[in-house]
């Protein structure tokens, strides 16, 4: 019998709230994150405009519904996060398996590349690159993906180092199977579950990174909303309408904490130590 697990329960609760926000809310009637209403701007939570329309989470500086904005921003973040995780997982696993399987100079080059990347603060690297190629959702997802492969690469390489000495790989090799075949059919399936755990941890980190860049004005660009950008817009109205900055912060907290607990629950179950 599985025992009650506090971090699992917390993860499920937090992520359920997120699912409601980014999947259920957009299905509600009257969902429109772009509709402006300058007469009903900066309504507080639970406020009504002069026509009597009710806004559960209030409205922003242009009178747009905060709940709908938060939902759309969540979809954008989730999409960027998912694509970035897939890109980095693909690169990281490929490089990690190659480094671990072939060893020698190939391994040195790949691990040197990983060290090089870790030797520059990631925010800075992302800022410099976005400044040059220009911010957009696609660029953001690609860049975040390209700069997050190291965690997967290191874990995949570490696992491959021990797996490659095991009998099933040795027997495949003595039967003359090619390296590609061994990596794809024997190593990959063994490494993949662990990679998904790394992914669940990294997903939260990538969401925070995206939010930070959007806060700095270098991430998602208007009119598309993003939680980070909403916080930055709300900063000027902190005294007047604190919900503008606080609500997207809470949304970020719920998502990040949810994935933090999820990866913690996974880690305990599999008795792994994650190396960040």
């Amino acid at each position: 019998m599985p025992k009650f697990n506090l971090s699992q329960a917390t993860a499920v609760t937090l992520l359920a709230i997120m699912v409601v926000l980014i999947i259920i809310v957009p299905l509600l009637p009257g969902y429109d994150p772009y509709k402006q209403d300058l007469g009903g701007a900066l309504l507080p939570m639970g406020g009504e405009n002069f026509r009597g329309d009710f806004y559960l989470l209030g409205t922003d500086t242009l009178g747009r519904d905060m709940l709908d904005r938060l939902a759309l921003a969540g979809q954008v973040s989730a999409l960027i996060g998912l694509s970035a995780v897939m890109v980095s997982l693909f690169i990281g696993v490929t490089l990690g398996l190659i480094a671990g399987y072939f060893r020698g100079p190939v391994e040195n080059v790949i691990m040197g590349l990983a060290d090089l990347q870790l030797s520059i603060p990631r925010v800075l690297l992302l800022i410099a690159v976005t400044a040059i190629i220009g911010p957009s959702v696609t660029n953001l997802a690609l860049l975040l993906g390209l700069t997050s492969w190291v965690a997967y690469g290191r874990v995949a390489r570490g696992m491959t180092l021990s797996l490659r000495e095991r009998e099933f790989i040795l027997s495949a090799r003595t039967q003359g199977s090619t390296a590609t075949w061994n990596i794809r059919k024997h190593l990959l399936p063994n490494v993949l579950p662990q990679m998904l755990i790394v992914g669940s941890y990294e997903f939260g980190m990538i969401i925070v990174m995206e939010a930070s860049l959007s806060y700095l004005g270098l991430g998602v660009q208007p009119p598309l909303p993003s939680w980070g950008m909403m916080v930055s817009e709300g900063q000027n109205y902190l005294a007047l309408a604190p919900h503008l900055a606080i609500l997207p912060s809470i949304a970020l907290f719920i998502l990040v904490a949810g994935f933090q607990f999820l990866s913690q629950a996974f880690t305990r179950e599999n008795e792994l130590e994650l190396v960040a």
Binding site: Y215, V231, L252, F253, A257
Partner: peptide
């Protein structure tokens, strides 16, 4: 605290 981004 760890789950709250710096700017928030």
């Amino acid at each position: 605290r760890q789950a709250i981004p710096l700017f928030s």
